[in-house]
């Protein structure tokens, strides 16, 4: 297993208030890491840092073993504007290939083939000509996941991918992500509110909590004070 991303003593501030302090962790290829934490704990800021859109105030984030920014597939949070957007499924998925283009203006045959492959992989063939705005929330997320796969084969960075989905579709989405991780050996970093799904699917947990953040394997997390707090019987029955 090779290292993909290494965070060394990373601190972030947001609007001059420190949100993340002294964070250390390493993501190896093939892992499934869930980043959890309360609102305002710096999940989004850290995500932007991992994508290279924001420099940490202190410390550094290293992308190792030649992991380029154009090998990271990103699934951002939905914007309300997209709901009404007239674009076909194929157009949306294909746009994931842009990052490997540089200044080449048009898509190649290879780009289109990759888009087709990913559409097939996520079971979207029947929807390929449909308009993105006519799809259900779960289908839209799958389209965006296919686009993320077009953008990066090595690492998927998912920012709250199940927000607004109903329980059944949420479960499907989680299973799909797990399959990509286990069968396709794609490294997954998922930002989530859903701590129960996090421990169910991920093999590593990063719980952000200012300077007392936790990082470790899922079983270590369950034994930690933070994990115990969330999974104590009291909380479970609430």
């Amino acid at each position: 297993m090779e290292e993909l991303i290494k965070c060394e003593n990373v601190s972030f501030s947001y609007e001059n208030v420190g949100v993340v302090k002294n964070l250390n962790f390493i993501v190896y290829s093939g892992e499934y890491l869930c980043i959890v934490g309360e609102n305002g704990s710096g999940k989004s800021t850290l995500t932007r840092g991992l994508l290279g859109l924001k420099q940490p105030a202190l410390g550094k984030i290293v992308r190792c073993n030649g992991l380029g920014l154009n090998e990271i597939g990103y699934l951002p949070q939905k914007t309300p504007m997209q709901k009404e957007f007239p674009a076909s499924v194929f157009e949306v998925v294909l746009s994931g290939r842009l990052n490997s283009h540089g200044f080449r203006p048009f898509y190649s045959k290879e780009d289109k083939q990759i888009a087709h492959d990913n559409i097939k992989k996520l079971g979207l063939e029947e929807l390929i000509k449909r308009s993105y705005r006519d799809l259900s929330g779960g289908q839209q997320q799958r389209v965006l996941l296919a686009r993320a796969l077009c953008a990066g084969r090595k690492l998927l960075l998912l920012d709250e991918p199940v927000t607004g989905l109903d329980p059944i579709v949420t479960e499907e989405m989680y299973r799909l992500i797990q399959e990509l991780n286990s069968k396709e050996k794609i490294t997954v970093i998922m930002v989530s509110h859903d701590i129960f799904a996090a421990v169910k699917y991920a093999d590593h947990i990063l719980h952000l909590n200012f300077d007392k953040s936790f990082f470790g394997t899922t079983s270590e997390y369950m034994e930690s004070p933070m994990g115990k707090y969330f999974f104590s019987e009291d909380n479970f029955n609430k």
Partner: peptide
């Protein structure tokens, strides 16, 4: 193609370079 990407999803376009 780039105008499409920027119109559809700025944060994705930005994140992927």
């Amino acid at each position: 193609n780039k105008i499409f990407a920027v119109t559809f999803d700025e944060s994705f376009a930005k994140a992927t370079g």
